[in-house]
Computed example of a mutant assay.
Amino acid sequence: MLDTTNASGSLATFRAAVTDAAAVTTGSRWQISDVEAVGHRLAVEVEILCAHPATPTALDLVEEAIVIWDDLSGHLRDAHHVTRTEPEEIADPLLDAHRDLCERLDLDPDEIAERLKRLLARCHYDTVDIDSYADLLGEHADTITSPTRW
Rank of each mutant, 00 (worst) to 15 (best):
A91T: 15
I130T: 00
I130H: 00
P53E: 08
V18T: 12
H140M: 08
T127D: 00
D96L: 01
D20R: 15
L95H: 14
T127W: 07
D71T: 07
P56K: 05
E86P: 01
I48P: 06
A51L: 11
V35W: 01
I144Y: 00
R118P: 06
T57K: 12
W150Y: 01
P109W: 02
H75C: 04
D71L: 05
E88G: 02
D135Y: 04
L95S: 08
A51W: 09
L61N: 13
T57L: 10
P93H: 01
H81V: 15
W150E: 04
K117C: 05
R29V: 03
M1S: 14
R84I: 08
H40D: 07
G9W: 13
A37I: 03
A37R: 12
D70N: 10
D71R: 02
R77H: 06
L42Y: 10
E111C: 08
L105P: 13
E88M: 11
A91Q: 09
T148I: 13
H140T: 05
A121E: 13
A79R: 14
R41P: 08
L120W: 05
T145G: 00
D129P: 01
D71E: 05
T13A: 15
A65Q: 05
E103N: 10
D131Q: 10
H140W: 02
H80T: 14
V38Y: 07
E114C: 09
D60N: 15
N6S: 12
T25Q: 12
L76W: 05
W30S: 09
R115Q: 09
T143V: 02
G39Y: 02
L61Q: 13
I90K: 03
A54Y: 13
A17P: 15
I90E: 09
M1E: 12
L59F: 12
W69K: 00
L2N: 11
H124A: 10
I48C: 10
F14P: 11
P87S: 10
R122F: 01
V62E: 03
D34I: 08
H52C: 10
G39M: 05
V46K: 01
L72G: 02
V62Y: 07
T143S: 04
P93S: 09
D126F: 06
T5V: 07
S8G: 09
W30G: 01
G138K: 03
V38T: 15
R104K: 06
D34F: 12
A43M: 09
T55G: 08
L137M: 09
A91Y: 01
I66S: 01
S33R: 11
R115K: 07
T19G: 14
E88R: 08
G9C: 14
S132T: 13
C102H: 05
C102A: 04
L76A: 00
A37Q: 03
I66E: 02
R77S: 09
R99F: 12
S8H: 10
K117Q: 15
R99N: 09
A91V: 11
D34M: 06
A17T: 15
S28R: 13
D129K: 01
W150R: 05
T26W: 02
H81Q: 13
T148R: 11
E114P: 08
S10Y: 07
H40Q: 13
